[in-house]
Every structure is written in structure tokens, then in C-alpha cells.
Nucleic acid binder design. Sequence first.
DNA 1: CGCCTTACATGATGACCATCATATGAAGCC
DNA 2: GGCTTCATATGATGGTCATCATGTAAGGCG
Lengths: 204, 204
Amino acid sequence: MRYSSDQKLQTRNRVLKAAAAQIRTHGPQGVGVAALMQEVGLTHGGFYAHFASKDALIAAAVKTMFEDAAAQRGRVIEDRSGPAALGAFIDSYLTADHRDRPDRGCPVACLLGQSAQLPALARPAFDTGVRGMVRLMASYLPETTPDPMALASSLIAELAGALALSRAVEDEALSLRLLEQSRLALRARAGLAIPNTESPYHDH
Amino acid sequence: MRYSSDQKLQTRNRVLKAAAAQIRTHGPQGVGVAALMQEVGLTHGGFYAHFASKDALIAAAVKTMFEDAAAQRGRVIEDRSGPAALGAFIDSYLTADHRDRPDRGCPVACLLGQSAQLPALARPAFDTGVRGMVRLMASYLPETTPDPMALASSLIAELAGALALSRAVEDEALSLRLLEQSRLALRARAGLAIPNTESPYHDH
DNA sequence: CGCCTTACATGATGACCATCATATGAAGCC
DNA sequence: GGCTTCATATGATGGTCATCATGTAAGGCG
């Protein structure tokens, strides 16, 4: 075995990445140290050379989840700005695709209901992430918005709530309705043009 | 020991009630059969006389959670009807009290992010509960609402999302802001009078 | 050439957990 | 008064899990 100079760091990052995906799909409790390390191609013993405990891993993983999410938002928004950026973000957020790929999805929506399972070590990272998302959203609102932070906070609640609900629900039709109704409502509330779409309650 | 005629049923109900509270506070995985039975004053062995498996217990508990929630809504709404009922519901839902007592709170908000942990047996009960809540909300909206079901679905997403977010967040001030902003936004969206409250972003 | 550090592997430990086979003890019936 | 039934208790089984002590191979440095 030859160890390059940053071997350990690379391994750590691979473990973190795998953990972030696992946490989003199976929750913080659903991740096992042994299974996680095996996924990375290692065995469970070496884990404690990288993290002091499972809780420490989760805290670090939550942090990287938010960093990845910020990068992803950048890719979605591209060079748009203001309300156009907000529209692109909302439209990409409330899709069946985002719903079905929680492992790459928004950490807020994934951790929304996991407050009980989330170790105390990981809480500050979550708070920071939520704050950042609210601030970002507020910055994209039209300049005429009277209280951008207030509106942004309400928009985030619906955005993440609708995605989480659409995931929790079993019935596909109900799930899609939840996504689409909130997408339209959010666009309207943010002062964006409404795409001409029939209410899914009426077409059949 | 004397067994009254409905002894078994009463025990079953006590187990269910305890399970419902545990699931809401610690999630489906956080409930242990042994600990649960001990809470009811029994030992773990008798459990399987009442439920075929832990998953079956959770499914039954989810069902009772929604029944309890419906009864609780009735108590909050009292003899109000229409928008007044809706206002009372929203105001009672987005409070620090509801946030801090998940064991007695809305099952939708508790199970929002637990989709991964929720056993398949319990999913239909959740769907039914969500549908019922949307229908109820739609029935309270002003008669002039163009598409009550569509609006109700969007309102539920924000309602449950805001409560879940306020629980997941560590910082008390942020948590209260999330509750209050969504409370005001929801009242406005439902066509209700806005109580005269300063934005918590501005007062300090 | 040989020692030491580094990155990981092996294997063990103790805790917890769902599940079930079997025992117990009381109530009601004959 | 013995027998059955029924709700619950006891104790075992097999599994999973986080954690840690110790072993091992390889590279770098003397």
C-alpha cells in the first residue's frame, strides 16, 4: 500500500460523501458505521481514525450536505438573478425528480422531521444551513417586497414542507398534487408569473 | 389477578397510546418494545399477544394518532365554522406549545420527515390522515376561494413544514420567527384578518 | 538496512433489540 | 375442587450495533 500525502483527507471525504447520502435516504439512525465503511471499500475498524464518534461523523456530514446544496443551487440558478433565479429554484425544487432522489437533495427537507434523531453535535450546522437558505431566498425576492426575510421564512417552510410531504405520502397522484399546488402557490407568493397549468384536481 | 371482560382491549389501548406518544417524540425507530411495555406497567413478553409485530403496532399507533388529532381539532375549533374555525386552527397549530409537545401534536408534522423509517404497513394510515386534513382545511376556506383543495394542499404544506422546521432548529429566536411568520402568512393566504404584530425581524 | 509512523484490518466486547417458547397464576365453569 | 382459559411473566435466541484494543503492511527517514 502506498499512501499519497493527502490519502487520509481523501478517504475522509469519501466517507463523508457516502454518509451524507445515507443520512438523507435512511436518516441519521439508518447509517451503520460498518455498512458505511464497506460502501467506501474499507472495513469498520478504521473509522475511528477519521471521526471521534458516529455523532461527530453525522455533524460533519450535515455540514457537507449544506455545502453541496449551495453548490447545486448555484448550478440551477446559473447566471439568473432576482425573481428569475427564485423561479428556477422553486421549479427545480418541487419536482418528482428531487422527491425521488433525496440522497442528492436539499438537506433541510431531509432533516426537517429528523429533529429527534439528529445528535446535538449536528444541530448548529442545521441552523446555519436554514439561516443561509432564508437569507438567499430573501435576496432573490422582488425589491418591492415589504419584509423580505419574513416572506422568505414562510416560503422556505412551504417549500421544504411540500417536498417532505410529497415524500412521506404513498399515493403518487396525491404526491404530485402536493408538489404542483405548492409550486404554483409559491410562484404566486413570490410575485412570479404563473405557468398556465390546470389544477390536477380538475383534470381526468 | 382478576381480568375484567375488556381487560385485553384496555391494555391494548394503553400500549397504543404510549406508542403514539413515543413515535411522535422519538420516531418509529426510537420505540423499543421492552421500554414501551414497561411504560405501561407490563413486561415485554406479553406484547405479542396484542400485536403481530412491531410494524403492526406502529401502523395501529399511526391510525390512533390521526383519530386523536381529529378529536383535538374538534376541541380547538369548538363551535366556530368557516374561516373563524380555520383561524383558530392555524393559531393553535403554530405555537411554541405545540412545538414543544410533539407527543400530543399533529401526526403529519411528526411523520413528515420519517418517511424512510415508517414501515409500509403504516403508510396507508398516513395518506388517509393527510387527505382528511386537506379536505377539512378546504371546507373551512371562504366560499369565494376558486380552488379550495388546491389552496388547502398548499396551506397544509406550509403549516406542517413550519412546525417541523421550528422543531428542528436549535435557536429559539429563529424557531419563534419561523412559527410567527408562517402563522401570519397563512392567515393572510386564507383570507383572514391579520393580527397587528410587528415583524420579529425588526423589533429589538 | 532497519526503525517508526501512518492508514487501515481483524477481532472482541458489551449493549440493545425483536421475537418467541414456555411458565405462572388467577378466574370461571363443570 | 379440578380443569380450562386467558392475560401476562420469564428467560432464551439470534441479530445488529458502536466502540476499541490490537495487529499488519507499507512508506519515509535515519
